[in-house]
């Protein structure tokens, strides 16, 4: 399982993208069933969501999620980046438009308790201003990163979701850009901060969820994680070995999460 590290400059990334393996592995029905069986063997009484972040934290769930300007920035900022590209709008205006849409839905009673729209509708103007600021920062970062990566990179409309209903489990794979002009798909994920020791496991998790979410189970040729704050890029190839390792990490994280919940209940 090779983890490649490069600097996140245009030149290094161009090499990383062009040298992606031409043949990515593919998951067949038997492998999907086997993975589903493994997840079912880790029982849960309520639906759970597993993602790369949980795997990187070794299944240890920290404090409960709550909306903050920082946690809302990616959702709003990415939607705004799409509008900037589609409508040629300024990032700042696009962010305000996206927030207005959320607020409109909340005012019409279409936002349920705990949703982003519901939370936004409860904010004071200054806090809403900070949400705008954080989302605009993310929007600018995403657009600039896209320019650094490649002109052919397309911003992803949404993350990958794969539901294993029999195990009450939803897998969420994070992805920000995809390049389809190379022989194999190259998927890119942008993260704040600096890659830790478990960054490779996180990338493999996103790789396997991306393959599970593909209609034909085709893995991306290369999955690249970008950390602009650190100026680093890490990548994993879409090999069967990496897919297996990613799947194992997900099951392991589910087991640890269950143990943690049982301990709390006891």
């Amino acid at each position: 399982m090779m983890l490649t590290q490069r600097r996140s400059t245009s030149e290094d990334l161009a090499v990383l993208i062009s040298s992606a393996p031409e043949l990515g592995a593919a998951l067949d029905a038997e492998q999907r069933n086997s993975f589903s069986t493994r997840l079912r063997s880790v029982p849960t009484i309520q639906s759970r969501r597993l993602d790369a972040w949980l795997v990187e934290q070794a299944g240890q769930t920290g404090e409960a999620f709550c909306w903050r300007p920082r946690t809302a920035r990616r959702l709003i900022g990415t939607a705004a980046a799409h509008r900037v590209q589609r409508d040629q709008r300024r990032a700042h205006e696009a962010v305000r438009d996206v927030i207005d849409d959320y607020l409109f839905r909340a005012v019409n009673g279409q936002a349920h308790f705990g949703s982003l729209g519901y939370w936004l509708s409860s904010l004071a103007p200054a806090t809403l201003g900070l949400v705008v600021a954080e989302a605009t920062n993310w929007c600018h970062l995403l657009l600039e990163t896209r320019e650094i990566v490649s002109a052919s990179a397309t911003l992803c409309q949404a993350d990958t979701y794969y539901n294993v209903s029999a195990a009450q489990t939803t897998l969420r794979g994070r992805r920000d850009m995809v390049i389809t002009e190379t022989p194999q798909r190259v998927v890119i994920r942008v993260r704040h901060g600096t890659p830790g020791k478990s960054a490779g496991a996180g990338l493999r998790t996103d790789l396997v969820i991306d393959a599970l979410g593909h209609p034909e189970g085709l893995s991306a040729g290369r999955f690249i994680g970008l950390w602009p704050d650190a100026g680093l890029a890490l990548s994993v190839d879409g090999t069967m070995e990496n897919l297996r390792a990613g799947a194992r990490d997900i099951v392991r994280a589910a087991v640890v999460q269950r143990r943690g919940l049982l301990t709390v209940a006891a």
Partner: peptide, 17 residues
């Protein structure tokens, strides 16, 4: 973002994050 009260507004914004 217009600041009505520089202290109260920045304090509430900072606390939210």
């Amino acid at each position: 973002q217009h600041l009505t009260d520089p202290f109260e507004d920045t304090m509430s914004a900072w606390c939210s994050n």
